[in-house]
Design a protein around this nucleic acid. Sequence first.
DNA 1: AGTTCGATCGCCT
DNA 2: GGCGATCGAACTG
Length: 200
Amino acid sequence: MVEAAEQVALPRSFYARPTVEVARDLVGKVIVHQVDGEELAGRIVEVEAYLGRGDEAAHFFGGMTPRTRVIYGPPGYAYVYFVYGMYHCLNFVTEPDGEAGAVLIRALEPVAGVEAMRLRRPKARRLEDLASGPGKLALALGVTLDQYGVDVTNGSLIVRAETNHKDFRIGVSPRIGIKKSADLPLRFFVEGNAYVSRAK
DNA sequence: AGTTCGATCGCCT
DNA sequence: GGCGATCGAACTG
């Protein structure tokens, strides 16, 4: 019998497309992580695209390194990195095998396992702050380097296709916290959503 | 081998 | 709005 999560996970073909398209289409989808016997889930309300060509802000600008090797492989896998000595950030690999590209997940609206997520984020007082940033959501979901390179079309960390929120507007803006290629409109978010890391 | 600095967060003023 | 925490990856020599 197939796991329920596998039946609804976005297929690899979803990720095997231009990064900007994948980024836009990920908004509104639901990430589900099975950890320590619990199901933690959140609706994606904010993402950023990082491109393979001409994007100086991307970690993989200038070529492959040991850290970024997964980005050059087949799509539909997790790219997780560690920053500022304390936070992890979750990305999904895009583009066909051999091409670089990734989408950074920047904010989630908690959907399931909220109490467990609160335990993982004791400093978050308000529900809106539980996963309203890339470092926060990785902590809340229990994503660490253990998830580096895992298949997100099949397994304990997946993206679910369906969502109850069908109607929403997608806002576009420059990406946050970067200095190079800073003007490119590669951030996509649910307009007016309280769980986004920044209003606009 | 040493140094720099980051796709962040939260606390301080 | 400013800054300190904290550490590995990547780059320099």
